[in-house]
Nucleic acid binder design. Structure first.
Lengths: 226, 226
DNA sequence: TGCACCAGTCTTGTATACCAGACTGGTTCG
DNA sequence: CGAACCAGTCTGGTATACAAGACTGGTGCA
């Protein structure tokens, strides 16, 4: 249980965000994490700083480390970055290996199952993972890494701005994108991917300021909240 | 002189790389940097770790921090990433602001002057800066940041694999790309950018293993080096 | 009642002490 | 002569101690 792996903390945080188990604004105390992972504060601090440079955490002086709460502007930037990069990837995706295609096909099927089963947790996780798998399909670790962090960011955004998250539609989009890739229609796949990300972004309400008291409203103000 | 700014070290290292004043494989000792910047080793270590997660430095246990020496495979990945992202940026660069265009135009002129004047240092620096400026022209800090780190990487690659660095050609490419952008031909600009980066990559000899003794050969083995 | 103030506590910020591994140069033994 | 060995030194790795700021809750004064 006491994992000595130094970047296990980083990976755990990223994974938890992608699985929507860590919400934006969550505080991560150094002491607490040190205890949980059985390491000293020094190591925890390292991981926190690394995650900060990756744009996942923010530090508030002498208050703690917090999962970032992207502003509307930052949210748009994150989606734009994903659009640019993912469309670019598909466009230059000359010939993915058969193994990669099979893996993607399998993933899309898994998505479908989760959507049909109504398993919200697995579903959200898989829908984000598709994009990461797609990036890794071209075998460029740099792009995969960049896209993983970007996907974590947009996941936070969608948690913050209450997306409707039309899971079925998204899964369908993924299916069609993959079909175009398999057919060798890189331009079409690229265009559809851009549209897809646009759609997801459009499903958010970026005009609404995120409400730090959101989870309290239901508890304390039953009737006439103006 | 004793700059208290915490990320001044990071910026200084990146800037030095872009200006080709720090070569791949250079060792950066914690104690040395701490003395130079008048801070404690703790702060230096922070900066080093941040640069490591940005892919600029590498740590060799108990030996020191080194500027990365990308392998041929990593080099190709870096160029591919730049191609994907920069082509993508240009393609979705709907309408750059007039101010941004003026800035880019000015930059290209400056490049030309440096090329004509034969100022190798300024020239190399400016040629890399063009791409960063272009990224910042669309006003997306995320993409700018990503591209800065990627450009630092490819700069290291070109130092390592002795590019011929046809500065005049590159500057000319930049000029033409900007002209296409101004003409609103995003597809053309995008295509030309991809070609441009390809050309730069092709100017390298990625098959040659970098030689750690390169700088000694000229000194010690004047005649018959097999 | 309401506001300002203040001690106490909690959390990160920073420096430093000490440890362990890697390298160096010299020495000794075959 | 050469190779193995062995202190000595230098480096980063890690933990810890302590400082300083932010928050909390309570108290006293107007």
């Amino acid at each position: 249980m006491t994992n000595p792996d130094p970047n296990s903390i980083e990976d755990a945080v990223i994974a938890a965000i992608l699985a929507r188990r860590l919400k934006p604004g969550t505080r991560l105390g150094e002491a607490k994490l040190a205890e949980v992972y059985g390491v000293s504060r020094t190591r925890v601090r390292e991981a926190m700083m690394r995650l900060e440079t990756r744009g996942i955490l923010q530090v508030s002086a002498r208050r703690g480390w917090f999962i970032v709460e992207p502003s509307a502007q930052e949210a748009r930037a994150a989606f734009e970055a994903r659009r640019v990069i993912e469309a670019g990837i598909l466009q230059s995706l000359a010939r993915p290996s058969d193994a990669a295609l099979r893996e993607l096909r399998r993933h899309v099927e898994e998505e479908r199952c989760a959507v049909l089963a109504g398993d919200a947790g697995a579903r959200a996780c898989l829908l984000g993972d598709f994009h990461i798998h797609l990036a890794s399909a071209i075998g460029n670790p740099l792009l995969t890494e960049i896209l993983r962090d970007l996907t974590a960011r947009t996941t936070l955004v969608s948690m913050l701005y209450q997306s409707d998250l039309h899971a079925a539609e998204s899964s369908e989009d993924h299916h069609r994108i993959l079909a175009l890739v398999e057919a060798g229609d890189v331009a079409g796949a690229s265009r559809l991917m851009a549209e897809h990300i646009h759609r997801v972004e459009a499903g958010l309400d970026l005009s609404a300021r995120p409400d730090p008291l959101a989870e309290l409203r239901g508890l304390l103000a039953p009737a006439g909240t103006p």
